[in-house]
Simulated scan of single mutants.
Amino acid sequence: MADDKTPADKPTVGRLKSRPQFLAVREGERRKGPFFQLEVLDRKAPEDPARVGFTVTKKHGNAVERNRMRRRLKEAVRLSAAFAMQPGHDYVVVARREVLGASFEALSKALGDRIQSKPKPKRPPAGSRNE
């Protein structure tokens, strides 16, 4: 019998819970958005489900405001962005204060856009031209 909590058409997304997991993702790619920064790490394990973690620092408000930001981001991932997450990748969403004032539709759209965006090619350092 199918479980009502996890329908077959919804993707399974794991959670990042320990500090070493969050620190490992910091070594990956960073994608900046208007409401958050998204850190992405390809674990090179396409058979594993995607994992996501959320970070809200103390500089963004008191505990009530930080928890509200985290809840909004979790819900945006659950409803819309989980479909865009690629298996074998870890995602950390680092909230900014603007999450509190943003409409939920704008937040969900920005999150989906950042997850689906392709990495930009890195520019060579200044002064390293080959002539």
Rank of each mutant, 00 (worst) to 15 (best):
M1R: 10
D3Y: 03
K5T: 01
P7C: 10
P7G: 12
A8Q: 13
A8N: 08
A8R: 11
A8C: 09
D9P: 09
K10A: 05
G14N: 10
R15I: 04
L16H: 08
K17G: 07
K17I: 11
K17R: 13
S18H: 12
P20K: 08
P20N: 04
P20W: 06
P20Q: 05
Q21D: 12
Q21H: 14
F22N: 05
A24G: 06
A24Y: 01
V25A: 11
V25Y: 02
R26K: 09
R26F: 05
G28Q: 01
R30V: 11
G33D: 13
G33K: 07
P34N: 12
P34E: 08
P34H: 01
L38K: 13
L41K: 01
R43M: 13
K44Y: 02
K44L: 15
P46Y: 13
P46W: 10
P46F: 08
E47V: 00
E47M: 11
D48R: 07
R51K: 10
R51C: 04
V56R: 00
V56T: 09
T57E: 05
T57H: 11
K58W: 06
V64H: 07
E65C: 01
R66Q: 05
R68K: 05
R68S: 01
M69S: 04
R71H: 13
L73W: 00
K74C: 08
K74E: 09
E75Q: 06
A76K: 06
A76C: 13
S80V: 09
A81G: 03
A81N: 02
A82E: 12
F83V: 11
A84C: 09
Q86I: 03
Q86E: 04
P87M: 02
P87S: 08
P87I: 02
Y91A: 00
V93C: 13
R96L: 13
R96M: 13
E98N: 12
L100H: 02
L100Q: 01
G101L: 08
G101V: 10
A102W: 00
F104W: 06
F104S: 14
E105Q: 11
E105F: 05
L107Y: 03
S108E: 15
K109C: 07
A110V: 02
A110N: 03
A110H: 00
L111A: 15
L111W: 12
G112E: 15
D113Y: 08
S117R: 09
S117M: 07
S117I: 02
P121A: 11
K122A: 11
P125E: 15
A126Q: 08
G127L: 07
E131I: 12
